[in-house]
Every structure is written in structure tokens, then in C-alpha cells.
């Protein structure tokens, strides 16, 4: 009787022990692995932060790092010691510098991050607001070989969906170009160079409004508490804090009025005619290539021939063929409308 109970206890204990301590897959093993990964992620995030400060002409500070990583300064100091010990940075006299191993690592991280965002944007149905978060995780898991394979698969893109340069292996990463939208002049033609993806809430708002790098627009009005921003045929009212996340550069090859006159294919009513000016930068990857292959190239005449019973999609006559597009896609084709052809 007793013997059996003992046996059960021992067997149970052994099962428990195995569950806990099984190499790699046991609970302990898993916990250790997760902890190792978390530490690595923190190290790599720190390195990336230092590089980003550096290319933008600023110097990383311990306090800035603590803020970025949301860690107490004491722990950051420990982290920096670790990084120095690994030969990734030099930390002397309170100044942070990347060593070449550290720089390579940081460049790889940035490359992997931006490639993964490109991948998510072009080849998956993952929602735009998720891209950054997922890439933030994935960048730590991709090896340089995997990043290269990914780049090859995507056709070696040079810009990520936020308009940032994807550095080629071994190439330096350029700093952010442009100035915040708040600093731009009213009525000056602008091109969006970058849409910052932190903090996520602001980014989600900009995404929802359809504001993408590469688009052209101008400030209609600038008040202390709001900005009226005309971009790609739509007017957006932005809080200054939100506008700060948009970087722009001034352009000279078009007049303000041209920008205000811009129209989109989706605005073409049934029976109206227009001429394609180009595709919006928000149209990327396979979607962009498909529209081009179908004949939506600059200079092409389009005619809105019929709408489906629900009002969407619309069929357009393009170079002799009748092509149906959904409203979202037609909204990516810039046109100038033409007078109805004489009957």
C-alpha cells in the first residue's frame, strides 16, 4: 500500500523534474532561452540607438539611452559595460562610440528591420500599423544570410515603406533627411521623406489618413494648435505633435497650384475622361507593378466606363481594354481630368 504511494510520488516527481529540466524544451530551459533572447534584444536595441544618433549627427548619452530603453540608469550602465566587454562599443569619459563590430551589427539590424517591413508591406496582408512592431521583433531573429535572401526575394528594394533607405550590406546608413513638417513654410511645395513609426498611436493615425513617404503636398495653414496639410489630393488637419512625425523636403519642380489641382482616378465619374500622371508612392511592390503592366503609365488616357451595382469597383477603358479596379487602387493613380471627348 505504502510502497505504491511512494512509487507514485517518485514517478510524479520524476515527471515534474523532466518537465522542468529537460534540456532546451523543459520549462527551465525555455525560461533561460527567453531570458537570453531578452538580453540580446536589449543589447541590440542599445547599439541601434547609438548608431541612429550618430548618423543624425548627435551623440548618444546614457540618459537618452535609458529613456529609449525605458530602463533605470543604473541598469543601463551595466548594459554598456557588457557591450564594451563584448567589443561592440567604447565607453570612455562618459562618451559612447561604436566600434566596427558594433557598427556592423547595428547596420544589420537596421537593414533587417527595414527589409522585414518591406516584406510585410508587399507580400503579406499584415495591417500597416503592425509592420513596425513585428519588424522590431524580427530584426533580432534574422541572420545576415536570411536578410540577404529576403532582399533578393523582394528584388533588392532600396527604400522601405516609410521612405527610409535600406542599407546594402556593408554600406553606411544615411541619416534622416528633411525637416519636420512643423518647420516648413506655408504654401511651399513639399515631398514627404519619412514618416516616423514611433510612437505607434501617432503612426497609426497617419497611416489611417493615408499619409506616406514620397507623397507631395503643401501646408495650407499653420496655427499654433493645428496644421492644415494638403497632400496627394486630400486635406488633413494635424496636431503639431503629430506633424512632428512627418519629415519633408522642399521641392522646386512644381507650383503650389499644380499640387492643389491634382486629381485621382477614383474621383473620375462614370463617363469622364482623364490622363494618367503617375502612381502614388503609397502604391508599392506587386500592386504597383501590376498597375503599370496593365497600362496605367504616365500619359495614358483613361475613361471611366462603368461602375458595378454597388458603386465599387469601376471599370476603366485603358489602351483599348476594359479594366476593373477597386476604389482603393484607383485612388493611387494620379490623373488630370480631360474635358469629355466630343461625341
Amino acid at each position: 500500500m505504502n510502497g505504491m504511494a511512494d512509487g507514485l510520488v517518485i514517478a510524479g516527481g520524476m515527471v515534474l523534474l523532466a518537465l522542468l529540466c529537460w534540456p532546451r524544451h523543459g520549462l527551465v530551459g525555455r525560461w533561460l532561452a527567453a531570458r537570453r533572447l531578452a538580453r540580446r534584444v536589449r543589447r541590440e536595441d542599445a547599439i541601434k540607438h547609438i548608431l541612429k544618433r550618430e548618423v543624425n549627427g548627435a551623440e548618444a548619452t546614457v540618459d537618452g539611452l535609458a529613456g529609449h530603453l525605458q530602463m533605470p540608469t543604473r541598469q543601463v550602465l551595466g548594459l554598456l559595460e557588457d557591450l564594451e566587454h563584448r567589443g561592440l562599443i567604447s565607453f570612455e569619459g562618459g562618451r559612447l562610440h561604436l566600434r566596427s563590430a558594433g557598427r556592423d551589427l547595428a547596420l544589420h539590424l537596421i537593414r533587417a528591420h527595414r527589409l522585414w517591413e518591406s516584406y510585410l508591406s508587399e507580400e503579406t496582408g499584415v495591417a500597416e500599423v503592425q509592420w513596425h512592431r513585428q519588424a522590431e521583433r524580427k530584426e533580432h531573429l534574422l541572420t545576415p544570410q536570411e536578410a540577404d535572401a529576403l532582399a533578393a526575394r523582394l528584388g533588392h528594394p532600396t527604400l522601405d515603406p516609410h521612405g527610409d533607405v535600406i542599407p546594402a550590406p556593408g554600406q553606411p546608413v544615411p541619416g534622416d533627411v528633411g525637416l519636420p513638417l512643423n518647420a516648413a513654410d506655408v504654401n511651399q511645395p513639399l515631398r514627404i521623406t519619412h514618416v516616423e513609426d514611433e510612437p505607434p498611436a501617432v503612426y497609426a493615425q497617419l497611416t489611417a489618413q493615408g499619409i506616406r513617404p514620397g507623397m507631395r503636398g503643401l501646408l495650407i495653414e499653420k496655427l499654433p494648435h493645428r496644421l492644415r496639410f494638403w497632400v496627394d489630393g486630400n486635406e488633413h488637419v494635424l496636431a503639431p505633435l503629430v506633424a512632428h512625425n512627418i519629415s519633408v523636403e522642399t521641392i522646386t519642380d512644381c507650383a503650389p497650384q499644380d499640387l492643389l489641382d491634382e486629381e485621382y482616378l477614383s474621383g473620375l465619374d462614370q463617363g469622364q475622361r482623364g490622363k494618367v500622371l503617375g502612381l502614388s508612392p503609397a502604391c508599392r511592390g506587386p500592386e504597383r507593378r501590376r498597375l503599370l503592366d496593365l497600362g496605367f503609365v504616365p500619359g495614358t488616357e483613361v475613361f471611366a466606363e462603368m461602375k458595378s451595382p454597388g458603386g465599387d469597383p469601376t471599370a476603366y477603358r485603358v489602351r483599348g481594354a476594359l479594366i476593373a479596379l477597386r476604389k482603393e487602387q484607383a485612388g493611387l493613380v494620379r490623373i488630370s481630368s480631360l474635358r469629355p471627348a466630343t461625341p
Binding site: 503579406t124 495591417a127 500592386e287 501590376r290 498597375l291 496593365l294 469597383p313 471599370a315 476594359l322 476593373a324
Partner: peptide, 14 residues
């Protein structure tokens, strides 16, 4: 099968 709706383009033949 969550995800964004992708694009649609269909040629309507004569």
C-alpha cells in the same frame, strides 16, 4: 485568415 484585403484588377473582355 486575418489580413488586409489585397488588390483586385480584372480585365473585362469584349
Amino acid at each position: 485568415l486575418k489580413g488586409q484585403v489585397s488588390t483586385f484588377s480584372l480585365e473585362l473582355p469584349p
